[in-house]
Design a protein around this nucleic acid. Structure first.
Length: 717
RNA sequence: GGGCGAUUAGCUCAGUUGGUAGAGCAAUUCUUUUACACAGAAAAGGUCACAGGUUCGAGUCCUGUAUCGCCCACCA
């Protein structure tokens, strides 16, 4: 017996070496796997942020996927798991800009676009090894020869190709839309970059003019010079008689034309039950204008100053508001002024008050018909719903299918342009009124669209751009659609749905057959992990203390798909004990195997046969659970069998025989112990790959040099 | 407001087509020349939120109530 078993299992000393053995073997690459393997199994890893570090959420994701991948590999599938990292465009650009501002006092406009992009790439170069090394430390059996980065050249080309294809099919178009404009930073910001601040405000109730029949309420009086309509609820008896009527009014020096329209989004109970519609400066009103075919005059500039009206012209919005209020009071049109608390949208980075403004943006139409790969005519929205309804994509947890369908069926056109610099730049060129859509510049005098694509546009292509699309590669033929996508449920609308959309359009297939959502990882008290709470548990730190095997199994044990779970140090410590338990089981078995010849003839007793039957039942149950991706239940089965049946019962009973004098019985018992040990190592290997591989290395008789390619325990006869 | 959930042992949670309630941790008692004290043995602990219903039988299916939570849209 190897002397290493005389000491407790020491993960820190072995994990790096074991990972190196796996990597050197080449078995992470499916083409190198031994045997025939006619069936493939593939997963594409949801790429972690290239500038980040591993947190418990991504550790869970890696653990779940590695467990499934190792299981399938042992079952004899040609198994591929593609690694990658994501540029996290908005967050990364913001971080680099902030650093430069701090260190050099310069804004991105001072640097210019090429220089800023250079700085970002340099920053990413310095950070990317961290996350990649942490993925290795997790034991993830990823095929590094296929590593992809969302912003590398291959992916860039593929994304451009996808845009052009969709443009040529008529699904991508340009149109106006209200964006969150930060007048202070002179930029558009995303919804995530908005901070809501509660401020004192005044709700003004007034009439446009003495002759206008309906009073309306607003906090933003200055925008009322951009009003084109008053919307009321269609069933509001107070106002029904006015619907369809039109009025010409001079409002605070500005001539406006107001039509009364009916719209279901108006709430009868709020304010006066009538809403002044300002299409150009409110997202809700923009949509009402859409439905009622109304004009959308802009009255506020990008500097948050008024663009119309005698006394209002060029005034800041806050000043203009007071001027309009004064005018209303003087004219006797003001009905009431009520102090209220209001949530004001401000830009996270500059603190500027967000001004909704209409801007030209690129969109993907989800309702325009196109000719699909199979020749039928459909729309993106219909195709997406069908993918789930037909069962081509299956959701492991049923309620997510409900959510997905609800979301897909209500999907609206998708705005894909973003006003930042770091990202996949839109391949559209302008020269005067001419437009060309192509990757490279058409020549002298052509300027490229300054916007970049929404990060989810390229992310939606991820399952097939990682396999070499738009080229018709062997990988695409063999491994796409992938078997499984696995991620947190919070990105269902952003990513999962977009992958189904993109794969359906570009390839005519679903991107994956099964959707496995894991829940959020929370701390021991059930709180979200957050920087401000300081309750982050670093998986790599935990692995140093207790071993990565313990971290992995602690993460997935009791983690039902789609349900949030909690992790704390105690739980991890508990599974470190389990790693040591299997270590000592191995020590005992190997000691006893040396006493006899397990290759010799043996006859099993009735008790031995029952023990083997119990092992077989366990293997069958585990296999059934694993095939249904219930890796949490399968882990539970293995844990209890190994600890409380194998160790506590089979092994304890064997002591009498092994210390006795019946040599024939000893042969059978030793054979039985060894058989159950090897089966147990295999069962546990997907979950605890390091300690099991380390024990495997010391086995005197084994089918393969490395446990990672041993065959999943067939039932022992 | 729209959508989706949760409520099971002191704590954290499993319980896959309905068939005698499960685990981990914590707490209790006992046991160390024993593979492992990072251990073993034993015992304890639950009207499965509440009220109805379907059924031979309900933690599981249906209806309602209460409490808690998540996502989306947000109040002009």
């Amino acid at each position: 017996m190897d002397q290493k078993f005389l000491k407790p299992y020491n993960p820190e000393a072995t994990e790096t070496l074991i990972y190196k053995r796996w990597e050197d073997s080449g078995y992470f690459t499916p083409e190198n796997l031994p045997g025939d393997r006619p069936e493939t199994f593939s997963i594409v890893l949801p790429p972690p942020n290239v500038t980040g570090t591993l947190h418990m959420g991504s550790a869970l994701m890696l653990a779940i996927e590695d467990i499934i991948v190792r299981y399938k590999r042992m079952q004899g599938f040609k198994t591929l798991w593609i690694p990658g990292t994501d540029s996290a465009a908005i967050a990364t650009q913001a971080k680099v800009e902030k650093d430069i501002q701090k260190a050099e006092g310069k804004s991105r406009h001072d640097l210019g676009r090429p220089e800023l992009l250079k700085r970002i790439e340099a920053f990413i170069e310095t950070t990317k090894s961290t996350i990649i090394n942490q993925m290795r430390a997790m034991g993830a059996s990823l095929d590094w020869s296929r590593y992809a980065y969302t912003m590398d050249d291959k992916r860039y080309n593929a994304v451009m190709h996808a845009f052009i294809k969709m443009y040529e099919s008529g699904l991508i178009y340009r149109g106006h839309r209200i964006v969150n404009w930060d007048p202070k930073g002179q930029t558009t910001i995303s919804d995530d970059e908005i901070v809501y601040e509660e401020r004192d405000s005044t709700l003004y109730t007034f009439k446009y003019s003495k002759d206008f029949p309906i009073a309306i309420a607003t906090t933003r009086l200055e925008t009322k010079v951009g009003d084109v309509a008053v919307a009321v609820h269609p069933e509001d008896e107070r106002y029904m008689q006015y619907v369809g009527k039109e009025y010409d009014i001079v409002f605070c020096d500005v001539p406006i034309h107001i039509k009364v329209v009916a719209d279901y989004t108006v709430e009868k109970e709020f304010g006066t039950g009538a809403l002044g519609v300002t299409p150009a400066h409110s997202i809700v009103d923009w949509d009402i204008a859409d439905r009622n075919d109304l004009p959308r005059p802009q009255v506020i500039s990008e500097l948050a100053k008024m663009t119309v009206g005698g006394r209002l012209f060029d005034k800041k919005v806050s000043e203009a508001r007071e001027i309009v209020a004064e005018w209303l009071r003087a004219e006797g049109l003001m009905i009431s002024e009520e102090k209220i608390k209001q949530n004001v949208s401000t830009a996270e980075r500059t603190g500027g008050i967000v001004e909704p403004l209409p801007k030209l943006q690129w969109f993907v139409s989800v309702t325009k018909p196109y000719v699909a790969k199979d020749g039928s005519t459909t729309t993106l929205r219909d195709m997406m719903a069908k993918a789930a309804e037909s069962g081509d994509v299956q959701f492991l947890v049923e309620r997510f299918e409900k959510q997905y369908l609800h979301w897909a069926k209500n999907l609206r056109d998708w705005c894909i342009s973003r006003q930042i610099w770091f990202g996949h730049r839109i391949p559209v060129w302008y020269k005067g009124d001419d437009i060309k859509v192509q990757i490279d510049s058409p020549g002298e005098g052509w300027g490229q669209d300054s916007d970049v694509l929404d990060t989810w546009f390229s992310a939606g292509l991820w399952t097939f751009t990682t396999m070499g699309w738009p080229n018709e590669t062997e990988d695409l033929k063999k491994y796409h659609p992938t078997a499984l996508i696995e991620s947190g449920y919070d990105i269902l609308p952003f990513w999962i749905a977009r992958m189904i959309m993109m794969s359906g359009f570009h390839l005519g297939t679903v991107p994956f057959k099964t959707v496995y959502f894991h829940g959020l990882v929370r701390d021991g008290q059930g709180r979200k992990i957050s920087k401000s709470l300081g309750n982050n548990i670093d998986p790599v730190d935990m692995a140093k203390k207790y071993g990565m095997d313990a971290v992995r199994i602690a993460l997935i044990m009791g983690m039902a798909p789609g349900t949030d779970s909690k992790i704390d140090e105690n739980k991890i410590r508990g599974y470190k004990n389990f790693a040591n338990k299997i270590w000592n089981i191995a020590r005992f078995v190997l000691e006893n195997v040396e006493k006899t010849d397990i290759e010799a003839e043996h006859t099993l007793s009735k008790e031995d046969e029952e023990d083997i039957a119990e092992l077989n039942r366990t293997v069958r149950e585990m296999t059934r659970n694993l095939d249904g991706y219930r890796i949490d239940l399968a882990a539970d089965t293995a844990y209890h069998y190994i600890w409380h049946t194998f160790a506590d019962q089979v092994l304890e009973r064997s002591k009498a025989v092994m210390n006795g004098t019946d040599v024939v019985a000893q042969r059978a018992t030793a054979w039985k112990l060894y058989t159950i040990l090897t089966a147990s190592l295999k069962m546990l290997h997907p979950y605890m790959p390091f300690v099991t591989e380390e024990i495997w290395a010391s086995l005197p008789k084994k089918e393969t040099e490395l446990l990672m390619i041993a065959r999943w325990p067939a039932v022992v006869e």
